[in-house]
Amino acid sequence: MTASHPRPSRQQQEGYIGLLFLLPWILGFLLFKAGPILAALGFSLTDFKMLSPESTRFIGLENYIRLIGDSNAGAGIFGSIGYFITTVPLQLAVALALAAIFTSDRLKNRRFLRTLFFMPSIISATAIFFVMIGLADPRTGWINKLFLEPLGLPPMQSLFSAMGFTILLMVMALWSIGPGFLILLSAMQAIPQEIYEAARVDGAGPVLRFVSITLPMISPAIFFTLVVNLTGVFGGAVLLDRGYLFSQSLSPMESYITSMMFDEGELGYASTLAWAMFVVTMSITIALFRSARKWVYFPEEERHDDL
């Protein structure tokens, strides 16, 4: 509305004041994001080592050639993508189902119950890890005592077996649904009841109402949950960061990068790996944002909002 008004000085002033408020983020972006990302790109072209930083040489694309031949890096990237593909839809489905149950007026003590379901999401990764080591202990753990032994199945040897690790991953994934669950629940509760009433009068059953009203109406929240879970898998700034497992992450690629950094001390090559991961993460994110235009519903007033 004011855009057509010929008052450039006032608008300029508003812009400057606004930029002043953005200053913390702009400085932080340059110092802690853009700067380090470019520095990492520089490091990736060298043989920078943790123990001998002074003998660093420029080696061109050598690290990138090594990356192409590195089967560990390939396994890491595909492992991370695989982890994303298996856990994120599971988390979303469980969070959606739980949120749908919580919209029922029949449920009592809803505030307490939602806190109970949220609670595991704030337990540190270390604590979960300790609990799971105990549960999977071959002699004293409850997984063998309560489930495998009574069912006559062979006992699990340790948490670090294939089965133990799968259980750990599942628990970690299902115990991270807290923020997604609450965001989806808030979105469902914000849908005007009149829409449901109208659909009910038209004879739509509960399943049809869920698919054709609830899902489209909460699609922005679904999209947000997907982005949050995506960043969780690839090690970004998750809504709720539970810390690392002994400075390791569950994401295979990130574990590989961390071990290259701290165990091998090869900072140059670790930077190359981090850049590869960065490119993969950004591509998936851009693809996700592109797809959002097709399935995410934006309310009318948002679409015309020019800010």
Binding site: K33, G35, A237, E254, I257, S271, A274
Partner: peptide
């Protein structure tokens, strides 16, 4: 939001 921590860690 989506930038992985590992890329900014070394610098």
């Amino acid at each position: 939001i989506i930038i992985p921590d590992s890329i900014t860690l070394i610098p």
